[in-house]
């Protein structure tokens, strides 16, 4: 008997006391999915929670986002910037005008990614109550390694992308899962509490996260 058959046989033996064979009919789940979480102000909550993670966040008007990105990179001390293909042409022009060196992802090696100062991306959706930014790695965000290996991440989130909490965010992530695209959630920069439960910001992922919140 194959391991698969054997395990399934064991499971069926172990659950023979369960008479109703339809899982949904057997166990009801008393939960309403996809509900918003009541918050006084969604955007303010998002900003507070990002700051609570010791990440930086600034606000911009659509017309000044390019400049806000350049300012963020200056503050982080970054010169070379990885830019995914789907990034707004206006922002790219602002980066050039701001004296930044633009690096395109021409199937860069891990080492080349590691040598780049920062990465600039958009996002799919953000959940205010937990301060979580969700990436679904479309062409405004690039493949997963781009937002992982460089040490600084500047992420532009539009206000209309901010929802109250995870249930609403999952609704907006559904198409990506259905298209089998990977998804990454980021809540602040990388961190650890492994030594005496003292939180230390910045381990292996980008050690600094800078969010530009566009109106």
């Amino acid at each position: 008997m194959s391991a698969r058959e054997e395990i399934l046989r064991r499971i069926r033996g172990a659950t023979r006391d369960i008479k109703v064979k339809d899982p949904v009919a057997d166990v009801a789940v008393d939960w309403v999915y996809g509900q918003p979480t009541p918050l006084d102000d969604v955007v303010d909550t998002f900003i507070e929670n990002i700051e609570d993670y010791k990440a930086r966040i600034t606000r911009s008007e659509a017309s000044s986002t390019g400049q806000a990105i350049v300012d963020a990179l200056d503050e982080l001390g970054a010169t070379t910037v990885l830019v995914p293909d789907g990034i707004d042409a206006g922002w790219v022009a602002a980066l050039e005008a701001g004296g930044k060196t633009i690096v395109r992802d021409t199937a860069l090696s891990h080492y080349e990614l590691s040598d780049t100062d920062a990465v600039l991306t958009g996002a799919r959706v953000a959940a205010a109550d937990s301060g979580t930014i969700c990436l679904d790695h479309d062409d405004t965000q690039g493949r997963r390694a781009l937002t992982l290996v460089p040490d600084r991440h500047v992420c532009v989130v539009r206000e209309d992308q901010v929802v109250s909490d995870i249930p609403e965010a999952l609704i907006r992530l559904k198409p990506a899962v259905e298209a089998r695209r990977p998804i990454t959630w980021i809540s602040g920069g990388s961190a650890t509490s492994d030594i005496e439960l003292d939180r230390v910001e910045g381990v292996h992922g980008p050690r600094q996260l800078f969010v530009v919140l566009e109106a």
């Binding site: 929670n49 609570d52 993670y53 199937a107 959940a127 109550d129 937990s130 301060g131 979580t132 790695h137 493949r143 997963r144 390694a145 899962v177 089998r180 695209r181 990977p182 998804i183 990454t184 959630w185 980021i186 809540s187 602040g188 920069g189 990388s190 961190a191 509490s193 992922g205």
Partner: peptide, 21 residues
């Protein structure tokens, strides 16, 4: 678990994505 509103990173993957991972 850690008493955080959310852990810093969550990865979700659905099979192989060409050119990514």
């Amino acid at each position: 678990s850690t008493g955080e509103r959310m852990n810093p990173y969550t990865s979700i993957w659905t099979g192989v994505t060409e050119g990514d991972g």
